[in-house]
Design a protein around this nucleic acid. Structure first.
Length: 423
DNA sequence: GCGACAG
DNA sequence: ATCTTGTCGC
């Protein structure tokens, strides 16, 4: 493949600090060394798109990404190998690399505030290898110091970086559990999990008594809706959307959305108090009312049996289904669960069947289906299967998902692969 | 007392 | 939820 490298052209100006362009080479050549440096990307107008700070690490290096708001994200980096920055581009019929010499010693890496990020090479036999698993605090502290990022932002960095410290006795899962523990503790100390939530728990007790577990459709089901919420954390806003589909054609009949400020934190178990309000607002803007709503969350498969689907259903007095991508509570027999579309296993919680793990596509992870309100489990499963002829997620969820993401679009959009107009 | 936790 | 980006074989 070395014959078809070519020089890449792009509309936007790239500003590489202290970098020198080298001619194209194979990345393999630089696999075992380190890199660090700063990459800024700007439009021709001079407006900053993003700044990326690369910090060396063992193997592939660590890369800290900041968007145009200077928010820091951690991410893996594949194409950047040490000492050199390698950009990888794909076209319809060819592949190319650009190689830049970062030319920095590790210690000289800096971020936008002029703060120095002290990066050092991490050896497998280094600091953490022989530590007691219980002593995660020091690992985190060490990580924070090393990379100069807060624990929240460091989450994904840690997950990845920790893989370097796996031994026979210490698994990556153990390490991540420890990190998780500290992360939660940190949130609690910031007051995110305190007695203020008691009133919401008692609210759930009341809702629980109103759940109807049998089919109670006013009409024959013709209109079926999906709901979803998207977030813009920078603005602290959220958009709730509802999309109504014709059940026979799966075509969109009507859609509505509502944008509002985020007022409630994400707390597992109290999720509905965060997402139900914007959805209700969106619902009220609809001209037609759906006969059934499918939620991208749990229904009664919830610690108190009052997941978002249930909460929403009671609030709107409309039948709802909870169809979540991940399990919240309950257990099922993974061995017995098959791998073909339609295979299912009961999800048991407090000795009750609160839902099912349902395979919606062959050889794909199950969905977690539970009733929300005014429906029974068998009916709910039937509907979910009807809504998943082609994909793992129900069409309703997919449509709602696409809608909110279209609306919340003010994210930094930058795609290396498609913004070159070389011809 | 500890671990786990939808979006 | 949010950020990101490949990998492979015929």
């Amino acid at each position: 493949m070395s014959s078809n490298y070519y020089k890449f052209q792009r509309k936007n100006e790239l500003v590489f600090n202290n970098l020198n362009l080298h001619e194209s080479v194979s990345p393999k050549k630089y696999l075992d060394t380190l890199f660090s440096g700063v990459l800024e990307e700007k439009y021709n107008s001079g407006e900053m798109i993003s700044r990326r700070t690369y910090v060396a690490g063992y193997l592939y290096g660590l890369y800290i990404y900041e968007d145009s708001f200077e928010r820091v994200y951690g991410s893996m980096c594949f194409e950047y190998y040490n000492g050199y920055l390698l950009r990888y581009y794909k076209n319809t019929n060819s592949v190319s690399f650009e190689v830049y010499d970062m030319g920095f010693p590790l210690e000289s890496v800096y971020n936008d505030k002029g703060k120095t990020i002290e990066a050092r090479k991490i050896e497998v036999n280094d600091t953490f290898q022989n530590k007691n698993i219980a002593d995660f605090n020091s690992i985190v502290e060490d990580m924070e110091k090393t990379y100069d990022v807060a624990i929240d932002d460091a989450d994904s960095i840690l997950g990845w970086t920790l893989s370097n410290y796996v031994t026979d006795e210490i698994s990556i899962e153990d390490l991540q559990k420890g990190i998780w523990k500290i992360y939660r503790k940190d949130k609690m100390e910031k007051g995110l999990y305190n007695d203020d939530f008691l009133k919401f728990y008692s609210e759930q007790e009341k809702l629980k008594n109103r759940i109807i577990k049998e089919d109670q459709f006013e009409n024959k089901v013709k209109l079926i809706a999906g709901v979803d919420v998207a977030y813009n954390e920078m603005e602290q806003t959220m958009v709730g959307a509802i999309v109504v589909l014709n059940i026979d054609t799966l075509e969109v009949i009507e859609q509505a959305h509502h944008k509002m400020n985020i007022t409630f934190p994400y707390v597992p178990g109290l999720f509905s108090f965060r997402e139900v309000p914007p959805i209700i607002e969106a619902f009220n803007k609809l001209k037609v009312k759906p006969d059934l709503i499918v939620c991208d969350a749990q229904g009664v498969a919830h610690p108190k049996n009052v997941g978002m689907a249930t909460h929403l259903g009671i609030q709107l007095n409309i039948p709802t289904i909870g169809c979540a991508k991940k399990r919240l509570v309950g257990y099922y027999d993974k061995e017995k669960l098959g791998s073909k579309r339609g295979d299912r296993q009961s999800l048991i919680w407090n000795s009750e069947e609160v839902g099912v793990a349902l395979i919606t596509q062959d050889d794909i992870k199950p969905m977690f289906v539970s009733i929300g309100h005014k429906i029974n489990l068998g009916t709910a499963v039937d509907w979910v299967l009807k809504l998943t002829p082609k994909y793992r997620l129900p069409e309703t969820t997919r449509q709602a998902d696409q809608l909110v993401n279209k609306i919340i679009k003010n994210r930094t959009e930058f795609d290396f692969l498609y913004d070159n107009d070389s011809e």
